[in-house]
């Protein structure tokens, strides 16, 4: 799974470089993000702007990662669009996750 990360202020911006988020990449996604948490990066912005397809198992993985973050930090979802955004809305997960249109918008909102 392609995942690139960089630090921006207090946040770690993790960008998923895959078009499809499905069962094939869900375990690896979980492993890599939980590794970030273990390494002390607890404020994470997850950029989904390159993702054009997501299934329930990947969304479920994000849900369990959000549980893992808990009160220790943040897991902010940015760049969800098309059917990815639809999936969040349909399952009401857009009410559970903090979501923003872009990395800049997410960081701006947190700073404000």
């Amino acid at each position: 799974m392609k995942l690139s990360t960089h630090v921006q202020g207090e946040f770690t911006v993790a960008t998923i470089g895959e078009a499809r988020m499905d069962a094939a990449i869900a375990p690896e996604l979980k492993h890599q993000i939980s590794q970030l948490l273990t390494d002390g990066s607890t404020r994470i912005v997850l950029d989904l702007s390159q993702v054009t397809f997501m299934d329930s198992s990947s969304l479920g993985t994000l849900v369990s990662l959000l549980k893992m973050v808990g009160n220790r930090g943040d897991l902010i979802i940015v760049g969800a669009k098309g059917i990815v955004a639809d999936l969040f809305k349909l399952t009401r997960m857009e009410r559970v996750f903090r979501m923003a249109d872009s990395v800049e918008a997410a960081l701006g909102a947190v700073a404000a």
């Binding site: 069962a23 397809f53 997501m54 299934d55 329930s56 198992s57 098309g82 059917i83 639809d86 999936l87 349909l90 399952t91």
Partner: peptide, 21 residues
Amino acid sequence: DCISPDGDVLNVSDTQIRWLV
């Protein structure tokens, strides 16, 4: 299929949300 008026199509089987729709 869950179809948006603009034509985006979310298939409930592909996305594995048959538990929901």
